[in-house]
């Protein structure tokens, strides 16, 4: 989507560069994907809020030239819910780590999805806790190595997409940092979507996940991402996908894009019925 020479600097907070992310980390690719999506939508950055949690992904809000909130671990969606409800004109984007979204903040994710509030959650899934030095995450694959699963994880990983679909998110996509052509388009689609959107981006952590699981350097890990995923379209209609088929071939693409009453709209309807006049903004 972005071609070499495209200037993203108006969307990035120059005074916070360089990022804290390690060389080869995929999170910068995702941040670029979000910036590219924002540019493609032509959004006024004064009306964009980026609300993050804690961990490597939690630093993402610092890097956008927008209203930025770096909240507590796992709670970004709850903060974003309050923010969006009182100021619905804001485009609210929530970068989340796999710990933020699937472990400590799992409750807020499913309830944001259930409410269908117009917020875009971008899940930076690198299969490990990077900021604390390589511990197992709820997204670490079975048998994978981490500092807290040195003999291999005995826990199955959460399927973020399945969870988001089941909880009621109305726009659900998965992509990877390898698939950089599609990623900004999926994120732009999520931001445009009027409802709760989840875009999971599989990201590489060469520093911890790659090293502990002998997956090589960042370029090797990008190829690993390519090889462990398969375009959703290649599976045929959704109901035919079995769990067995998904092993080693994680489907990527747009899983759901549908309309359902959005939460802030619903609330405004309630205010109108209560005779409360214009909703505070």
């Amino acid at each position: 989507m972005t071609k070499p020479g495209v200037d993203l600097t108006p969307y990035l907070r120059q005074e916070m560069m360089p990022t804290v992310w390690c060389p080869g980390c995929g999170h910068g690719i995702i941040a670029r994907g979000i910036a590219t999506a924002l540019m493609s939508l032509g959004l006024d950055m004064d009306q964009v809020a980026v609300v993050g949690g804690i961990g490597c992904s939690g630093r993402a809000p610092f890097y956008f030239e927008a209203n930025a909130m770096h909240t507590t671990h796992g709670r970004a969606l709850a903060y974003a819910t309050g923010l969006k409800m009182v100021n619905p004109g804001l485009t609210v984007i929530v970068p989340m780590g796999d710990g933020d979204s699937m472990a400590i903040g799992g409750n807020h994710l499913i309830h944001a999805a259930r409410r269908n509030i117009d917020i875009t959650a971008v899940i930076f899934n690198n299969s490990i806790y990077g900021m604390t030095g390589g511990q197992a995450a709820p997204t670490s694959p079975l048998d994978s190595r981490s500092t807290t699963s040195p003999m291999g994880s005995i826990e199955p990983a959460f399927d973020t997409v399945e969870l988001a679909l089941a909880a009621g998110a109305t726009y659900v996509a998965r992509t990877t940092t390898f698939d950089f052509q599609e990623m900004p388009q999926l994120i732009a689609g999520a931001i445009r979507h009027h409802g709760f959107s989840v875009v999971e981006v599989l990201s590489q952590c060469p520093t911890y996940y790659g090293r502990l699981n002998k997956l090589g350097e960042a370029p090797d890990m990008l190829l690993y991402e390519r090889d462990r995923t398969k375009l959703l379209e290649a599976f045929g209609p959704l109901p035919e996908i079995t769990r067995e088929e998904m092993v080693g071939k994680l489907p990527i693409g747009l899983f759901r894009d549908e309309e359902r009453p959005e939460y802030v709209d619903q609330y405004h309807g309630l205010v109108a019925r209560a005779g409360g006049g214009k909703h505070a903004s």
Binding site: T71, R75, A78, Y79, L83, V86, A280
Partner: peptide, 16 residues
Amino acid sequence: EIGSIAAAIGAAWGGA
């Protein structure tokens, strides 16, 4: 309650 206080702080930054 964690979500409650978090939403309240988020709302404050939204102008409430």
